[in-house]
Design a protein around this nucleic acid. Structure first.
Lengths: 231, 231
DNA sequence: ACTTAAATCAATAAAAAACTTGTCCTGTAT
DNA sequence: ATACAGGACAAGTTTTTTATTGATTTAAGT
């Protein structure tokens, strides 16, 4: 019986996600018919760079990080994936494989929706399409900023960016820094772990931030903005 | 240029795998056209229980473990996946989702082949089909044995089984035990980690095995067989 | 050539996981 | 009711992973 109850809750769950509110009943049915729900545990891969992508992931609950895999050790962290966000949207309309990896930072309840279903609903429902496009657009902007950072900024600026970005997530997840190692921060900023440690100490000494175990509290946001701006 | 060379090597690689030797050139082309190669790093998930399965994985190189996810902490390890083996075959003909998880114990070079391609070639090539069926058959046998073990054996018998199974893999991977924790052994035998530790010590005291760090050497195979038989 | 940014290397230190061991509790089968 | 298999808990130990720090290259920019 427990199973039935849970299935019931799933049902309610996908109806509740704001993103799917705008679907007509029959459209919601298309999505529902070709979706499955999976519990990814902490450290499970949600997507693997290069693997076939026949579906899109929609995060109900939990946090993950999205990253690029390089040659061997050098990963680059792209973003934190939050509840209500999609992973693998790029696979729906063009790519046949995931072009990045992602891994659960906490247990994640996730909907997997087959990409044909998403494509179909997008074609039928302009508002839903608009919403999807908006997400693509935001991701584009973020990627452009990322490229800009990598091209034009150096250590200090990049780390300032990283800290400001992660700090902005505290609204949704106050303990966000607890989920990340120094190597994670390094991979966000695109610098070495050792440099990350040194930089953080420096920022602390200059009174810009306070380090408390893994947590980082930002004291002088304006100064970090300035460092970020200067590059 | 490096990329081109590697692609070249991939090309040779899939031709070389014995399993694909029996394909006619045009059949091999079908497979090749809908395959991609991925490097799964140690601890990456190859498959995630419950996720959509649009492809089959073929292990070129490396070792992985396949397991069932339960409620929370209690996983059950089904088998070690070796080079030359498929993962997710069950998805080709019936299931639409993976019904187990698997994770890389070492870095794994893996081919992903879209399941339509496998299905198509199976229909065309009897010998290939025969080979696939044989694999299903072996998996069935193993699963039946697993059920038998769980139903009818207790701790000692299960652990003896586990040790004999893993020891048999030493031909292909002498350091197999180095890749596994006590919890892994426990999850193979379906008992608690603590009981595993105690049992291993007991077996050692009785001169059945020798524990050396993580490695386990079997001294009295016949005795273990007897324990396994008695249950 | 000289300066500077930042990676790499090496050596600890600290924190987290994994492993061990003993004791106790629980449920099933006698 | 009793015995026993085996899990659960607690406490201690060991091993592995992360974090930190300083010293030493590397490499690009001026």
């Amino acid at each position: 019986m427990k199973t039935i109850l849970e299935t019931d809750r799933d049902f309610i769950c996908d109806i509740q996600a704001p993103c799917f509110q705008m679907l007509l009943p029959e459209e919601a049915e298309v999505v529902r018919a070709s979706k499955t729900q999976v519990l990814f545990r902490k450290d499970d891969n949600l997507t693997k760079q290069g693997a076939f992508a026949s579906y899109v992931l929609f995060i109900i609950d939990g946090f993950a990080k999205q990253y690029l895999e390089g040659d061997g050790i050098k990963n680059y962290n792209l973003r934190i994936i939050k509840p209500g966000e999609f992973v693998g949207l790029s696979a729906v309309f063009s790519e046949n494989t995931f072009n990045y990896s992602s891994v659960a930072l906490t247990d994640c309840h996730v909907f997997l929706v087959e990409k044909e279903a998403i494509a179909k609903v997008v074609k039928q429902n302009g508002m839903f399409a608009f919403n999807i496009i908006k997400r693509y657009c935001e991701q584009n902007t973020n990627l452009l900023n990322t490229v800009r950072n990598l091209m034009y900024k150096q250590m200090n600026g990049r780390m300032a960016d990283t800290l400001l970005y992660l700090d902005s997530l505290k609204n949704e997840k106050a303990e966000i820094f607890q989920l990340l190692s120094r190597k994670d921060l390094a991979d966000f900023a695109g610098i070495s772990t050792e440099s990350t440690v040194k930089l953080l100490k420096m920022f602390e000494k200059d009174g810009l931030i306070i380090l408390n175990e893994k947590d980082i509290r930002i004291i002088k946001q304006s100064a970090l903005f300035e460092i970020s701006r200067r590059g």
